[in-house]
């Protein structure tokens, strides 16, 4: 296999990891802010405290890994995306800063600030929306070259229906992923009230998720026929993804097997995400940049892959330990004290 494919696969995998765990985090933030208004705070608060506070920093590193990695493997992305994305990404940074500081600040001191909780919840929806702009731009048609420098066409971007479908998908899928995960988590925690509420949220957001995904594929036909054709060539991947979507919804519906429902959701998103990635191949940015002309030299690529393998060997046991302590430790999840 060639190194460019290895590189982009690794990065895509980590991006998927980020999307899943960040969605859980973003959505939970939104639900918790919402519950503040709906006076159901006591139901959700504990779960968020127990699950999210210990891991938010790790979530953030997944994002850092992705953007550092992509500039490493594909230095030309710094040139194209760096120039074009100054404004949208700067806004994302500010939103990420609001959220990141929230965990630390609210645990001590700023606890009662309603404004902060509100900002935190809202940022959870605005971040996926603003980051999803990167995917929209990658479809081409929003960047033009002026004096050999890429320029973002803000007007086209703002008035394109594709933009808004992608924004919509990013927001509703955050809520859907998050609600499904938290339902399963509340189930393990034997917190029936929270589980009941979250299950309703999960079911409510399942429909919009699949609808907006369908909408995007339809709009791609207009916007980027080449990409649309590639999607059609591997239509079965997306069909399979849809099957898993149905499985998740049914499992949620019958109020059983919540953990299984979450794993089925992961498979659904994984299929769609990797199917999308594969159909995007070989372009990083239509029509200017492919993974081959943007690729780094062989010496660097080899070094990065070796570093990745070594780093990964270190990472996996540590992540496993973290998950064992906070995620899959039933006693911790239930909030029981335990000494080792």
């Amino acid at each position: 296999m060639d190194l460019a494919i290895v590189g982009i696969s690794v990065l895509w995998l980590f991006l998927f990891g980020y999307i899943i765990i960040a969605s859980i985090d973003f959505g939970a933030g939104f639900f918790s802010a919402y519950s503040e208004l709906a006076h159901t705070k006591h139901i959700l608060h504990h779960i968020i405290q127990r699950y999210l506070s210990p891991v938010w920093e790790v979530t953030n590193v997944f994002l850092v890994f992705f953007f550092v990695g992509i500039v490493g493997f594909f230095p030309s992305t710094a040139f194209y995306y760096g120039t074009a994305l100054l404004v949208p990404v700067s806004i994302s940074i500010i939103l990420l800063a609001i959220r990141g500081s929230y965990y630390a600040f609210q645990t001590y001191g700023a606890k009662d600030s309603k404004v902060y909780i509100f900002l935190y919840g809202l940022a959870g929806l605005l971040i996926p929306a603003s980051l999803s702009i990167v995917l929209t731009i990658s479809e081409g048609g929003f960047v033009e070259m002026v004096n050999d420098a890429p320029k973002l066409m803000y007007g086209e971007l703002f008035f394109s229906p594709l933009t808004w479908s992608i924004v919509m998908l990013s927001v509703v899928s955050v809520l859907y992923i998050s609600a499904t995960f938290l339902t399963a988590y509340a189930d393990v925690a034997k917190d029936d009230k929270a589980r009941g509420l979250l299950r309703k949220y999960a079911l409510a957001w399942s429909g919009p998720t699949i609808l907006s995904a369908g909408l995007i594929i339809m709009q791609l036909q207009q916007h980027n026929a080449e990409h649309f054709q590639n999607i059609m060539d591997i239509w079965w991947v997306f069909a399979l993804s849809f099957v898993f979507f149905i499985v998740t919804v049914v499992l949620l519906w019958v109020k059983k097997y919540y953990s299984l429902a979450f794993w089925s959701l992961i498979i659904q998103f994984a299929l769609a995400f990797f199917g999308y990635g594969a159909s995007h191949y070989p372009y990083l940015l239509y029509p200017y940049l492919t993974i081959y002309d943007g690729f780094t030299n062989d010496a660097m690529a080899t070094a990065l892959i070796i570093a990745f393998i070594a780093g990964f060997a270190l990472l996996i046991p540590s992540l496993f330990l973290l998950a064992r302590l906070f995620l899959f430790n039933k006693r911790y999840v239930r909030g029981e004290k335990r000494r080792y």
Partner: peptide, 21 residues
């Protein structure tokens, strides 16, 4: 020079995980 930048992210991972624990 992207190699050390890339390795830095592993150092972050390592630190963040154990700090959380």
């Amino acid at each position: 020079i992207s190699l050390p930048l890339f390795m830095e992210t592993f150092a972050f991972f390592f630190e963040a995980i154990f700090l959380g624990i």
